[in-house]
Design a protein around this nucleic acid. Structure first.
Length: 299
DNA sequence: ACCCAGGCGGGCG
DNA sequence: CGCCCGCATGGG
């Protein structure tokens, strides 16, 4: 008789998962995935397949139904989705750890079920280079244009094109700065051209997984166009290093407002404050503070 | 028109 | 070191 686990392999039960908060939280996956939040529908490309997901329930208790368009085996689809949305993270425990005060407690309550995603290291690198001095709407536009222009076609078993993969560094390494700027990248075109060549010829991002946080950061910042903030984002969302605490303009403003009466503090000080306060889960704290801050501070 | 956006590299003191 | 500036582009 078929085991329960096998017969349910196209479905994952979830708790502490919220589709809307996760998809609206400006992470690499969400820059290019498609979602119709009200219908609980989402769709995204892996390297050689397109996955359709349907979410039922709410952030307390729900389920994700999964379908591969190119025939990925069910157990592989499940593994991919669990990994990509970090569904094995113990969110109740993490909330307990990072809810050090009412301010962040409000953020985790308001965005209950928002998950960090785990993305391909190069995907994260490219997305966050695009993100610099930019806004979320336009980041999406640029990332999608890069995929449309440079991504490899994904085909189903009948050979029909069902989507495009996120372009690898080698797919972009031949592009000129000018060509990249035609995708709307602006002054970041130079960084992308340089980073694509560097990550194809000089630095293998897929060999940095075992590195500790400090040497990972050091390696990532060798890439032209990758500074501390982008490296932190890549460490967090490309490598899953939860100690990383990227500080952008929103996180800076929000921390200052929440903990320092709005007084100006430099990045180094704030980062040490955060990593001391939230330790091994600082990255989760950051994601909630980032999104909460945008919510409460935009006029 | 003007301001801002998930920053970075380079130049200056 | 730390600070300050320009940078392409599109939306509010």
């Amino acid at each position: 008789m078929m085991s329960t686990a096998e017969s349910m392999a196209d479905r994952i039960d979830t708790s502490y998962f919220d589709l809307r908060h996760t998809f609206e939280s400006a992470q690499p996956l969400t820059f290019h995935a498609d979602a119709e939040i009200e219908k609980g529908y989402m769709r995204y490309s892996t390297y050689d397949d397109v996955l359709q997901l349907r979410f039922f329930g709410d952030s307390r208790s729900g389920s994700i139904h999964m379908k591969s368009l190119a025939g990925m085996p069910e157990h592989c689809v499940e593994k991919e989705v669990v990994r990509r949305f970090r569904l094995n993270d113990d969110l109740p425990k993490i909330y307990k750890m990072i809810n050090t005060d009412n301010a962040i407690g409000n953020a985790t309550r308001h965005f209950h079920g928002m998950r960090l995603t785990l993305n391909d290291p190069w995907e994260a690198t490219l997305c966050f280079i695009v993100s610099q001095f930019n806004n979320v709407k336009r980041i999406r536009l640029i990332v999608r244009k890069l995929i449309a222009t440079y991504g490899m076609e994904i085909k189903d078993k009948e050979g029909r094109v069902i989507g495009k993969a996120f372009p690898r560094s080698e797919d972009l390494a031949g592009a000129t700065e000018k060509e990249l700027m035609e995708c709307g990248t602006g002054f970041r075109g130079r960084y992308i051209a340089s980073a694509a060549k560097f990550c194809t010829n000089n630095l293998d991002l897929y060999k940095l997984n075992a590195k500790d946080y400090d040497s990972l950061m050091e390696n990532l910042m060798e890439i032209d166009g990758v500074g501390e903030k982008v490296a932190d984002c890549v460490a967090l969302m490309g490598y899953g290093n939860l100690r990383a605490f990227p500080i952008d303009v929103w996180v800076k403003r929000t921390l200052e407002k929440m903990y320092f009466n709005g007084k100006d503090k430099n990045i180094k000080y704030l980062k040490e404050f955060a990593q001391e306060r939230w330790g091994d889960y600082a990255g989760y704290a950051q994601q909630y503070i980032f999104w909460h801050g945008r919510e409460i501070m935009k006029k």
